[in-house]
């Protein structure tokens, strides 16, 4: 018995709009429905909260508290929609703090990567004895709460007049970001193939040259990730800024927000306060919308392996 099947083009049939799911998954169990409902609800709340934050930044305190879901109206009708932002920017010092933060964060992040990359390379690819032990020694630093170093660090920095000083802040930021960055970058360098390095060695390139011209470009993805993650971390850093900076002129955004908090509540300046929160949060949101994948994988990388 042989079934010859040469269907000479039957009129083209329409495929179903959606292929049927496997039979097992079709019977939605109540548990699953409940779980999915919860997941969507949780997600919706997150979006709602974000909406609330952005809309409240354009509202008067009365609007914030009596009409939390309405679109902002008052300041728009008065022709001054950015009134809260202007207040935070000018009266609460966020304008200057924004500038300080951008420069401090940018310079610190770049320097952190510049210092960490060679160290991570040295720990992973130079075949040094005890490199694993030293990697662990540096990585332990990630587990040390800043509270445990901040007191002697403050005293020491005060000795050399580097407290309440942006250069001192920069030094502290660079040093305290090293453990995470070195650890992150060792992961990237470890994953690079040996062959290219060996080929460069056979071509007579010096190790320094190999590092500069071959390994750094190869690890570019990792370096950029490290740069972004440090920028995010420092943008949001508050504790050290509270301890080390106590003059308005030196305030970073998070520090300024911290100082603004009590003043704003006394004056019921909730509009300006939320605008201040928005000034801290929205740049992160923009960055996140652009680079979500890189940020997520970078931050969760350490845990996966």
């Amino acid at each position: 018995m042989s079934t010859v099947d040469s269907r000479v083009s039957v009129a083209p049939r329409k495929p179903p709009r959606k292929p049927k799911p496997a039979p097992g998954s079709r019977g939605l169990s109540p548990l699953r429905v409940l779980g999915m409902a919860f997941v969507w609800l949780f997600t919706a709340v997150n979006l709602l909260v974000l909406y609330w934050l952005v809309s409240a930044a354009f509202k008067t305190p009365i609007e914030i508290f009596t009409k939390p879901f309405a679109l902002p109206a008052h300041w728009f009708e008065r022709g001054d929609p950015f009134r809260n932002f202007a207040y935070a920017w000018d009266n609460a010092g966020f304008g200057r703090a924004f500038l300080v933060t951008v420069v401090l964060v940018a310079v610190s992040s770049v320097v952190i990567v510049l210092v960490s990359a060679p160290a991570a390379y040295a720990l992973t690819r130079l075949g040094a004895r005890g490199a694993d032990g030293m990697t662990n020694f540096v990585a332990i630093g990630m587990g040390v709460p800043f509270q445990t170093v901040v007191i002697p660090l403050f005293i020491g920095m005060a000795e050399v007049n580097l407290t309440n000083d942006l250069f001192g802040m920069f030094l502290v930021y660079v040093a305290l970001s090293l453990p995470f960055t070195v650890f992150l970058l060792t992961g990237f360098f470890k994953s690079l193939p040996d062959e290219l390095e060996e080929a460069a060695a056979l071509d007579g390139a010096s190790p320094l040259r190999t590092f500069r011209t071959i390994m750094l470009p190869l690890a570019r993805g990792g370096l950029v990730t490290a740069l972004i993650l440090n920028a995010i971390g420092l943008w949001n850093e508050t504790l050290l800024a509270i301890v080390f900076l106590n003059e308005n002129a030196n305030f970073t955004l998070a520090r300024a927000l911290f100082a603004f908090n009590s003043a704003a509540s006394y004056q019921s300046e909730y509009g300006g306060l939320i605008a201040g929160v928005a000034i801290v949060v929205l740049p992160m949101l923009v960055l996140y919308l652009l680079l979500a994948r890189r940020i997520i994988t970078g931050l969760t990388l350490g845990a996966g392996k």
């Binding site: 060679p118 130079l126 540096v138 630093g141 445990t148 040093a175 090293l178």
Partner: peptide, 17 residues
Amino acid sequence: FFLPAVTLYVVFLVVPT
């Protein structure tokens, strides 16, 4: 390669701890 990072690490983290 390793010294700059580890120096900062020791001075700002290990010693204060």
